[in-house]
């Protein structure tokens, strides 16, 4: 199961990098979404995909799951949910102001020198 998940994570990261290298802003945002999905899946997988009872709650269990990665991944998901939402709104505003969602056309115009 871990091997399969590793491959899935690899595919997610690959797709994310491909999307983030494109010029369209929306694709870039989808790419960041996939990237954080990959990272979250990695976090779950790296701690071992065991099945078992809930720990602590009942006594005398030998086969239990590690609750920590689940708590961590929930936190990370919430954060990436918020950031992605912000990013979408930002992209929408930028599209309205700049009139384009093409990163090529968004290059700096004024010089800083």
């Amino acid at each position: 199961m871990e091997i399969l998940m590793s491959i899935v994570i690899g595919i997610l990261f690959t797709c994310a990098v491909y999307l983030m290298l494109s010029k369209s802003l929306l694709r870039i945002i989808i790419g960041t979404g996939l990237l954080s999905h990959g990272a979250h899946l990695l976090l779950l997988t790296m701690s071992g995909l065991k099945t078992g009872a809930a720990p602590v709650l009942t006594e005398g269990i030998t086969n239990y799951t590690d609750p920590l990665p689940q708590a961590l991944v929930l936190t990370a998901i919430v954060i990436s949910f918020g950031v992605t939402a912000f990013f979408l709104v930002l992209a929408y505003r930028a599209y309205q102001e700049l009139g384009t969602d093409n990163m090529e056309k968004m290059r700096g115009t004024e010089s800083h020198d």
Binding site: G38, A39, A76
Partner: peptide
């Protein structure tokens, strides 16, 4: 920063 956060999680 989104990319670096994903790397942080990894």
């Amino acid at each position: 920063n989104v990319i670096s956060s994903a790397l942080f999680v990894s």
